[in-house]
Computed example of a mutant assay.
Amino acid sequence: MPSPAAEPPPSIRLLGDRLLVRLDGEAAERRSSSGIVIPATAVVGRKLAWAHVAAVGQGVRQVGVGDRVLFDPDDRAEVELTGVVYVLLREKDVHGVARPEAQGEGTGLYL
């Protein structure tokens, strides 16, 4: 699957505070921080999802195209454009925006 940044933006103009996002690829199974394998069929409580922003409406103030956002996947509407499935959200439904990775910066702490 190509990366979301490599795909051309969809041909759509969003209105108001709407966002069009593409879900990050979900692995079939995950590993906990201690190394335990968690199968895809495991029931997890309310889990938020990450997605890449493909388009934004003119009323969106804090999120831009290309940002990676965190949202609740239970509150979503899906749409298919040119064979790609996107999720339509309102800006208020976004819980957070991932910080871009700092290039060449460390914490300054040595252990």
Rank of each mutant, 00 (worst) to 15 (best):
G59A: 12
L15F: 03
L20S: 02
G104L: 11
R18T: 00
Y110I: 08
P8A: 13
S32T: 15
R90W: 06
R18F: 03
V79W: 03
V79K: 05
A51P: 02
D24Q: 14
R13K: 11
A28V: 10
M1E: 11
Q58V: 06
A42K: 08
V79D: 00
W50T: 05
P8L: 05
L23I: 07
E91F: 02
V44S: 10
L14A: 02
D75G: 05
R90H: 14
V63I: 15
P73H: 04
G104K: 08
L81K: 00
M1R: 11
H52T: 15
R76L: 07
A27C: 02
E91C: 00
R18N: 01
E101S: 11
E105Y: 04
V60S: 02
V94T: 07
I38L: 12
W50F: 14
W50L: 14
L15P: 00
V43I: 10
E29N: 13
R90V: 03
P2V: 13
G45E: 10
I36Y: 07
A49H: 13
I36S: 11
V69K: 09
A6M: 10
P39L: 04
P2A: 14
V79Y: 01
G83V: 06
V94I: 15
L15G: 03
R46T: 10
L111M: 14
L109S: 10
V44I: 09
S32I: 02
R99Q: 12
V65P: 03
L15T: 12
V65L: 04
P100V: 12
E78I: 07
T82H: 07
W50A: 13
R99Y: 08
L14Q: 02
D74R: 15
T107N: 05
V79L: 07
L15H: 11
D93Y: 03
A55N: 04
G66L: 14
L70K: 13
Y110S: 09
A102R: 15
I12F: 01
G57H: 05
E26D: 05
V44R: 09
P4F: 09
L88C: 05
R13M: 03
P9E: 08
V85M: 08
R30I: 13
V43Q: 11
G106V: 07
